[in-house]
């Protein structure tokens, strides 16, 4: 790990970059817009304006958000002392691309069409390299454990024909790769952040499992190792009503995040609310770093804020585009400031 002072330049630059993060007042103005054109006009007053010129249609705003994220990741990757900090954020997009290509491969074998349009440029591995590896079935050079994971996923598909099983093995691989990167970086905050993310994903999965009324043995496969809460502890929650979950895991930080939940009786609305609570909980793990001018965790905190900003803009634009309840959308905004 580089000496702490090496992060002085990177953290200072990110502090200056954070001035350009989209403020709550701008999000509010986007929400108050009459239509998508008006909302995009407001977005044009922010750093996103650079990408709005390439917009093909007002419904294509996802590309704008994606382009801004790619630009920030590329920029930060150029000056950050340890690129693993950025790779951590790009890793889920690599696994998303792998899932897209695997499904394309399966579709192709069954006479369907490839869906390269669903690929994202946000990953660490260039999409072209990934496509080449998948098409030629030569996975040897794929990083982040994908060289073994992709063939395993393909074999699993051949054996079970169950895409959910394939998703499970890839998700497990994703969190294992994220944890490995965080451990290799030697940055305590990075590992805590990954563990917090695993806890969040496990809680989210647990709520979905509870809604589906799945039995414990089947549920175990949907939970991932490596979080602050053990799989066994989480599985034991399934036998209890959701109302008692906050009390049962109150000892853990993610359990305390539950205290923000207003109503646990409706699982559907709880799931939506938990998405926001978990994102804010993951942000809170890195919160203390802001008091240390040289902490590498500040890099993670900035990138996470950028991710949350992208989510907030997406929520606002979708709400305006579909003309849904703006108060509901506002309630879903993550704390990115």
């Amino acid at each position: 790990m580089p000496p702490a002072e090496q992060y002085g330049y990177a953290v200072a630059r990110l502090r200056a970059m954070s001035v350009n993060l989209v403020e709550d007042s701008v999000l509010q103005r986007i929400l108050e817009s009459e239509d998508l054109e008006g909302a995009l006009k407001v977005l044009g007053e922010t750093v996103y304006s650079a990408w709005l010129v390439d917009l093909k249609g007002s419904g294509d705003f996802d590309r704008v958000i994606e382009a801004e994220l790619v630009s920030v990741y590329d920029e930060v990757q150029r000056f950050v002392p340890d690129v693993r900090l950025v790779q951590l954020f790009r890793l889920p997009y690599d696994f998303h691309n792998v899932k897209v290509l695997l499904k394309s491969l399966v579709l192709l074998r069954e006479g369907g069409e490839r869906r390269f349009d669903l690929l994202t440029p946000l990953g660490n591995i260039p999409s072209d390299d990934l496509i080449m590896a998948m098409e030629s079935e030569d996975f040897r050079l794929l990083p982040f454990g994908l060289h073994t994971l992709v063939p395993a996923a393909l074999t699993l598909w051949e054996q079970t024909r169950d895409i959910l099983e394939v998703e499970k093995i890839l998700d497990t691989g994703l969190f294992a790769a994220m944890k490995k990167l965080a451990v290799e970086s030697g940055i305590g905050g990075a590992l805590a952040w990954v563990r917090g993310k695993i806890d969040g994903e496990n809680i989210r999965n647990l709520l979905r499992i509870k809604r589906m009324d799945m039995d414990v043995s089947a549920a175990a496969g949907f939970l991932h190792e490596g979080g602050f809460l053990s799989k066994e502890r989480l599985l034991s929650l399934l036998s209890e009503p959701v109302e008692s979950w906050p009390r049962a895991i109150a000892f853990a930080d993610v359990g305390r995040a539950f205290s923000d939940v207003q109503d646990v009786t409706d699982l559907n609305s709880l799931l939506v609310e938990m998405e926001k609570i978990i994102d804010d909980y993951v942000a809170s793990i890195l919160e203390k770093a802001k008091y240390n001018a040289f902490a590498p965790e500040n890099i993670l905190a900035f990138l996470w804020k950028k991710e949350l900003e992208a989510k907030n803009i997406r929520i606002a634009l979708v709400s305006v585009g579909n003309n849904t309840d703006r108060t509901l959308a506002k309630g879903l905004f993550r704390h990115a400031g």
């Binding site: 002085g8 330049y9 953290v11 200072a12 502090r15 200056a16 970059m17 001035v19």
Partner: peptide, 14 residues
């Protein structure tokens, strides 16, 4: 030197 590193970081953006 330490202050300069931070200064360079800020001035890159502003």
């Amino acid at each position: 030197g330490i202050a300069g590193e931070s200064g360079a970081g800020v001035m890159t953006e502003d």
